[in-house]
Design a binder for these strands. Structure first.
Length: 694
RNA sequence: GGGCGGUUAGCUCAGUUGGUAGAGCGCCUCAUUUACACUGAGGAUGCCAGGGGUUCGAGUCCUCUACCGCCCACCA
């Protein structure tokens, strides 16, 4: 027996050595697996953002996927787990802008597009190396030879190709719509990138003018400079008589023409039952305006300032203009009521900027248009069907309801962004002509669209762009559709839904069969781990203290799919102790000569456990599995069977049998220590590709 | 406003198809150098949030209520 077994298990000394052993074997790459590994099994790693380092949530994701992959590999599958990183356009752009501002006091326009993008690329390159190191330390058996990046050459070709195909099918269009403008980030964002914040606000009720008999309510009087109508419910007896009339009024210095229209979208019960219609600055108003052929007047610009030439208001910030208009209303005795209310205000997820709805010329994905080549189903329907038909199974199941709910309320997806870091939109303009293609058009005078694409456009392609699409590669044929997509429930809309959209349309197949959603990892107090709180624990510091295997167990045990978990020193300590227990069991068994006949009863008992565990693994119940093996190894094997063996002779053969097979069952969960012990038992082969017992 | 979860031992949470309540940590008693003190043996602790229902039988199924949490949302 190796003398290292005489001292407690030392993860620090073991882990790097074992990882190198695995890497040297080449078995992370499915091409190198023994020939009996025939049936492919694929997971693509959700590419972590190149903005930062791996957080505990990222560690959880890595561990769950590694467990699945190691299990499937031992079961004889040709397993591919494909790594990569995400360029995370807006997030990265914003982060580097912040650094630029802090270090040089400049903004991106000061240094120009080319220099800025170079700076971002430099930043990203540094982070990618650190990420790879952290992920490896988790024990991840990823095929690094296939590593991809959402913004590399191949993925750029995939993006251009996808864009062109969708444009040709009429699924991508350019048009003026009311979009979510982030004045702080100076870009549009999609509906999903909005977070609502509760704020105290005031609801003002007033008349535009003494001559206009109908009063309206609003929290944003400054937008009323752009009103072109008042909408009332067609059945509202108070206002029916006014429908169809037009009033010319002077409102705070702006000449308005207000038409009274009847529209069923108006809630008679709210406020005065009359709605001032601002077609340029409200989605719902724009819809009303479209129904009644009303014109739109833009009053607010990209800097959230009044752009309408009204003396005293032009150039003012919206908040200042609001005060001035309220003062004017008061002075003219038009203000009827002022109420304190709490309002949910839309802010940009990345910058915190308050969203300003503005009409802008942007690129969109049409989610409702029937697609001829897909049985006249729309993207929305394709996304819905993929899950409703059972072709994609979401775990935990109740998230399927959330998914359907989201699809049912889905609007067209705004995909163009006014930032510099990202995939440039493959559209070129010359005079009035638009050219969309994968390459720049021939001839002089074409100018490419300056905008970039929403980062989720390229991540939506991930399951197949990472396998080489649009080229018809062998990998694509072998490994797509992928088997499991494992990710956090917080990005089910951002990412999971978009991947289904892209794969269903571009490939005509689902991107994966099972979606396993994990929850948030919280600290021991149950608080969200966040960088701003300073407790965003680096998984490597945990690994140093407790060992990777202990961290893996602590992250997994008792944590079902979709539920949030808590990670604290108690749990880590418990599994660190377990690693050492296993170590000592190995020491005890190894100190004996293998001998005696197998105890049938004990072997049967173990095989029953193995069957049970296998069933759990097949059903993604890792949180139960890990605990079952733990409990068996410690409290049955060590406390009872080994104790019994001390009093009886000729049991060592049975002990070896149980130890070896326990190591196999435990390997997906605790790969390092099990491999280390295995190397002492069987000096030729790696536990990592040993066949699963059962 | 719409939707989805949760409520089980002091704490953190399991409990797959309904069959006399489980684990880890903590607590109490004992063992004292044992493969392992990063240990072992034993022990205490629960009206499974509350009401109603289905059933021979409910933590588990149905229904209502309360509280907590999360997601979505263009009541101006």
């Amino acid at each position: 027996m190796n003398s290292k077994f005489l001292t407690p298990y030392n993860p620090g000394e073991t882990e790097d050595r074992i990882y190198k052993l695995w890497e040297k074997s080449g078995f992370f790459n499915p091409d190198n697996l023994p020939g009996n590994h025939k049936k492919p099994f694929t997971i693509v790693l959700p590419p972590p953002n190149a903005t930062g380092t791996l957080h505990v949530g990222g560690a959880l994701m890595t561990v769950i996927e590694d467990i699945i992959i190691r299990y499937k590999r031992m079961r004889g599958f040709k397993t591919l787990w494909l790594p990569g990183t995400d360029h995370a356009a807006i997030a990265t752009n914003a982060k580097v802008e912040k650094i630029l501002h802090k270090e040089e006091g400049k903004n991106r326009h000061d240094i120009g597009r080319e220099a800025f993008v170079a700076k971002v690329e430099n930043f990203v390159e540094k982070n990618r190396g650190a990420l790879k190191h952290q992920i490896s330390k988790m024990g991840a058996s990823l095929d690094w030879s296939r590593e991809a990046f959402t913004l590399d050459e191949k993925r750029n070709l995939a993006v251009r190709t996808a864009f062109k195909k969708m444009y040709d099918a009429g699924l991508i269009y350019r048009g003026i719509r009311i979009i979510n403008w982030d004045p702080k980030g100076q870009t549009t964002i999609s509906d999903d990138e909005i977070v609502h914040e509760e704020r105290a606000s005031k609801l003002y009720t007033f008349k535009y003018s003494a001559d206009l008999p109908i009063a309206i309510s609003t929290t944003r009087p400054e937008t009323k400079l752009g009103d072109t109508a008042i909408a009332v419910h067609p059945d509202d007896e108070r206002y029916q008589k006014y429908i169809g009339q037009t009033y010319k009024v002077n409102f705070a210095g702006a000449a308005l023409e207000i038409k009274i229209v009847g529209d069923a979208a108006v809630d008679m019960e709210f406020g005065t039952g009359a709605l001032g219609v601002t077609p340029a600055h409200s989605q719902i108003d724009a819809e009303i305006a479209a129904r009644h052929n009303l014109s739109a007047v833009q009053v607010i610009n990209e800097h959230a300032k009044i752009s309408l030439p009204v003396p005293g208001l032009e150039g003012e910030k919206t908040t200042v203009a609001r005060e001035k208009i309220v003062a004017w209303l008061r002075e003219k005795h038009l203000l009827i009521k002022e109420e304190e209310i709490t309002q949910n205000i839309a802010t940009a997820e990345r910058t915190g900027g308050i969203i300003e709805p503005l009409p802008k010329l942007q690129w969109f994905v049409n989610v409702s248009k029937p697609i001829e080549s897909r049985g006249n189903k729309s993207l929305k329907e394709l996304m819905y069907d993929a899950v409703a038909s059972g072709r994609i199974k979401i775990l935990p199941e109740h998230f399927e309801k959330t998914y359907f709910h989201w699809i049912n309320n889905l609007h067209d997806w705004n995909i163009s962004r006014q930032i510099w870091y990202g995939h440039r939109i493959p559209a070129w303009y010359k005079d009035e002509t638009i050219y969309v293609g994968t390459e720049e058009p021939k001839g002089a005078g074409w100018a490419q669209d300056p905008d970039t694409l929403d980062t989720w456009f390229s991540s939506g392609l991930w399951t197949f762009s990472s396998l080489g699409w649009p080229e018809k590669t062998k990998d694509l044929k072998t490994y797509h559709p992928t088997d499991v997509l494992e990710t956090g429930y917080d990005i089910i809309f951002f990412w999971v839904a978009r991947m289904i959209l892209m794969s269903e349309f571009l490939l005509g197949e689902s991107p994966f069969k099972t979606v396993y959603l994990h929850g948030l990892v919280r600290n021991q107090k149950g608080e969200k781990l966040s960088k701003s709180l300073g407790d965003n624990i680096d998984p490597l510091s945990i690994t140093d203290q407790y060992g990777t295997d202990a961290l893996r167990m602590a992250l997994i045990v008792g944590v079902g799919p979709g539920s949030d978990s808590k990670l604290g020193p108690d749990k880590l300590k418990a599994y660190k102790n377990f690693a050492n227990k296993l170590w000592n069991i190995a020491r005890f068994v190894l100190s004996q000569e293998r001998g005696g006949e197998l105890d049938k009863e004990l072997v049967n008992e173990f095989d029953g456990l193995a069957k049970n565990v296998t069933l759990d693994m097949e059903n993604y119940r890792f949180y139960i599995t890990a605990e079952k093996i733990y409990s068996y190894v410690w409290h049955r094997f060590a406390d009872e069977i080994i104790e019994k063996s001390k009093k009886e002779t000729r049991m060592s053969g049975t002990l070896y049998y149980i130890l070896e097979n326990s190591l196999k069952l435990l390997h997906p969960f605790m790969p390092f220590i099990t491999e280390e012990i295995w190397q002492e038992l069987d000096k030729k082969n790696l536990l990592m590709i040993e066949p699963w017992p059962v």
